[in-house]
């Protein structure tokens, strides 16, 4: 295991959230206790029980992707592309878009997300022609005229790991990679696996993070009736209150976070402007053998214990223990 034990640091952060674009804007808002929660405005949320979310307003994807790329990615992918660019620039890594070279085979890409299909609005509009008078779908008509009815890039846009491809193509990232599917765990898993890849020596640099477009109507149709979101719409920004006695459920947000992992500067010459931000402890993941949506019992640690197996990494050494912070104690 040639790279075992290499020290891994975070050298760049990129994110786009309801609180702003980039690490500085988000950090300032977090410290100030600002809220990005508000009524969903991108569409009429009246069919939903939960009509609040952390939407991202005024996001301009053209700063981060070409027109051609924008035709083949959905909104979640666009957020991913933005965060990736911000993270690379924050890390001071020269890349194709900043006049540098391809990042190549020693750069990894580990992403996690909950991507569903894309371009649903156009698909629904186009499929109206297959509706029979009795309201049923005419599959044969769709089959015979699919080349006219289906949006040409619908299938390509819906590729789950579409952002992995687009980011790799944009920056010439050709190294190790994986795309993890899931909800709140997926991005964290990706970051953990990227850290392991750099530590092991599978990559010298890795771009890692998660993205989601959870406030879209399509995502909300799936989340809304599960009983995990607060329905206290009248409370507005006050509705989302983790750990509060009056908490009543979580809220979705749109977000993309991307971290740039590197091996320690002690063993790898980083580019100018690259400053390791933080050493990294060991990530852990946990499975849920319990029934879905059932919170763990109070005090149950889940599986974070895997982190403790690394020498020198004991719970007592953690300054803080980041938690998901979702309202009703949904464990994973």
């Amino acid at each position: 295991m040639s790279g075992s034990g290499r020290q891994v640091v975070i050298s760049g952060i990129g994110l786009v959230t309801a609180l702003g674009e980039g690490p500085e804007a988000n950090w300032k808002a977090l410290v100030a206790g600002e809220s990005g929660i508000g009524p969903i405005e991108a569409y009429d949320p009246s069919p939903l029980q939960t009509r609040l979310g952390g939407e991202i307003a005024d996001f301009d994807a053209t700063k981060y992707a070409t027109k051609r790329q924008l035709r083949t990615v959905n909104r979640g992918d666009r957020l991913a592309m933005a965060a990736a660019r911000i993270a690379l620039d924050d890390a001071g890594l020269a890349h194709k878009q900043s006049g540098g070279d391809e990042l190549g085979y020693r750069t990894g890409l580990y992403l996690g997300g909950n991507k569903s299909l894309g371009r649903m609005e156009q698909l629904i509009e186009e499929l109206k022609v297959i509706r029979r008078p009795d309201g049923t779908a005419d599959l044969e008509h769709l089959a015979r005229h699919g080349d006219v009815i289906m949006p040409p890039l619908f299938f390509v846009e819906g590729l789950p790991a579409g952002a992995v491809f687009t980011i790799s193509q944009t920056y010439g990232i050709r190294g190790s990679s994986t795309f993890f599917a899931g909800y709140a765990d997926a991005g964290a898993t990706a970051i953990g696996r990227a850290m392991r890849a750099v530590r092991r020596g599978d990559a010298d640099v890795a771009l890692a993070g998660g993205y989601d477009d959870a406030t879209s109507w399509w995502s909300m149709t799936l989340l809304d009736r599960l009983g995990i979101l607060t329905t206290r719409n009248e409370r507005g920004q006050q509705a989302y209150r983790p750990y509060d006695r009056d908490r009543s459920g979580g809220l979705p947000g749109r977000a993309r976070r991307c971290w740039c992992w590197r091996r320690s500067r002690r063993r790898w010459r980083a580019g100018p402007g690259s400053t390791p931000r933080s050493p990294v402890t060991v990530p852990g993941t946990t499975g849920a053998r319990r029934r879905r949506r059932t919170p763990r019992a109070a005090g149950s640690p889940g599986r974070c214990g895997v982190r403790w197996r690394t020498p020198g990494c004991r719970p007592a050494t953690w300054a803080t223990s980041p938690r998901t912070g979702r309202g009703p104690g949904w464990a994973t």
């Binding site: 789950p160 790991a161 499975g287 053998r289």
Partner: peptide, 10 residues
């Protein structure tokens, strides 16, 4: 209750 990894790379 150990590691749970869901992968979606087609």
């Amino acid at each position: 209750t150990g590691p749970m990894l869901g992968v979606s790379t087609a």
